[in-house]
């Protein structure tokens, strides 16, 4: 039983018994919850961690956003294994800059919409699409096309740009002892990281683990101390149940803000292991994964596997 499942079970247990605030017999209440009508929800976390094979990477190829997402989940074993009826889903794309979809510096809004649709079809109670953009929320949400696309299919898209969206968490790293981390992610049943594959001026590439920085209030701290170690420790703190990399197209220079030269790969990468996903994406980009310092650092912290030979890569 992992921490998230424990908290979720505890929450439902307390709720169902009407004993909010009572701290006694936690494990029993968690157990009780398994037997009530919320059983399905409590199994979400367990299945999220185990339903998809950690050692597997799914590469969906093509250009149609809906079919890319559908193919990917089908190959993973179906979205139903991850998103159960009534669960709340948080998706973290990259809309950190005020660029238009065609400028290829933000996650493709059509892919996001396809994902939101799938989650809702699988019975998700709500799908929140969040990021902490560099620029003002209105400009980033509008220009990236993400607000319109996500809201059109019934999701919510917003920027977590005030401190009230964050809560203090213990990270217990060398650099990050603690941090203000996104409440939305902490409270979610399912957390999907959905970065875009693009150039980054200082870390060479921005990928799944780098994308997680958008869930922390004080990013300046990373830059002030040790950016690479900070990213790795953050990756170790909270792993998404699934990372999907939008590698349909991205800028290959002038990142992360752009505008830059756009390259098309027409791929979407799905995987549970954040290190493995980033390793594959870096290779696709044409960079040796060892050159991306945060991938190496995260692998050293035991976040995931860097050796692609130990993974099953399935192309669909």
């Amino acid at each position: 039983m992992d921490r998230r499942q424990f908290i979720s079970g505890l929450g439902y247990g307390l709720l169902s018994l009407g004993l909010a605030g009572c701290g006694l017999n936690l494990s029993e209440k968690s157990g009780t919850a398994q037997n009530n009508k919320n059983t399905a929800n409590n199994q979400v976390a367990a299945s999220a961690a185990s339903s998809y094979d950690r050692g597997k990477l799914i590469i969906a190829e093509g250009t149609d956003p809906n079919s890319l997402i559908e193919k990917g989940f089908a190959a993973l074993g179906g979205i139903g294994a991850l998103v159960r009826s009534g669960s709340s889903v948080v998706v973290k794309p990259n809309f950190s800059v005020a660029r238009k979809p065609e400028e290829a510096a933000t996650t493709n809004p059509q892919l996001l919409a396809a994902l939101v649709k799938q989650c809702l079809a699988a019975g998700a109670k709500e799908v929140k699409v969040i990021d902490y953009p560099f620029q003002s929320p209105a400009v980033c949400l509008t220009n990236s096309g993400i607000k319109d696309a996500v809201e059109a299919v019934g999701g919510k898209a917003y920027a977590i740009n005030t401190q009230s969206f964050y809560t203090q968490v213990d990270i217990n790293g060398k650099i990050l002892k603690n941090a203000l981390f996104s409440k939305d992610v902490l409270n979610a049943d399912v957390f999907i990281n959905f970065p875009i594959l693009k150039h980054h001026s200082i870390t060479k590439l921005t990928l799944g683990m780098k994308n997680m920085m958008g869930l922390v209030w004080d990013r300046g701290y990373f830059h002030k101390t040790d950016l690479i170690q900070g990213i790795a420790e953050l990756a170790a703190f909270r792993k998404p149940q699934l990372t999907i990399v939008d590698a349909t197209r991205g800028i290959i220079d002038n990142g992360p803000t752009g505008p830059g030269t756009i390259r098309e790969w027409n791929q979407v990468i799905f995987g549970v292991d954040p290190v493995a996903v980033d390793t594959y994406a870096a290779t696709l980009f044409g960079v040796k994964p060892e050159e991306i310092a945060y991938i190496t650092a995260a692998a050293q912290l035991g976040v995931g596997e860097m050796d692609l030979r130990k993974l099953t890569v399935v192309k669909v």
């Binding site: 800059v97 560099f134 980054h200 200082i202 990013r219 300046g220 830059h223 040790d226 992360p256 803000t257």
Partner: peptide, 12 residues
């Protein structure tokens, strides 16, 4: 000598 460069990252 920090790997900062946040200004360059965000310059639009």
């Amino acid at each position: 000598g920090k790997m900062c460069y946040i200004c360059g990252e965000q310059c639009p």
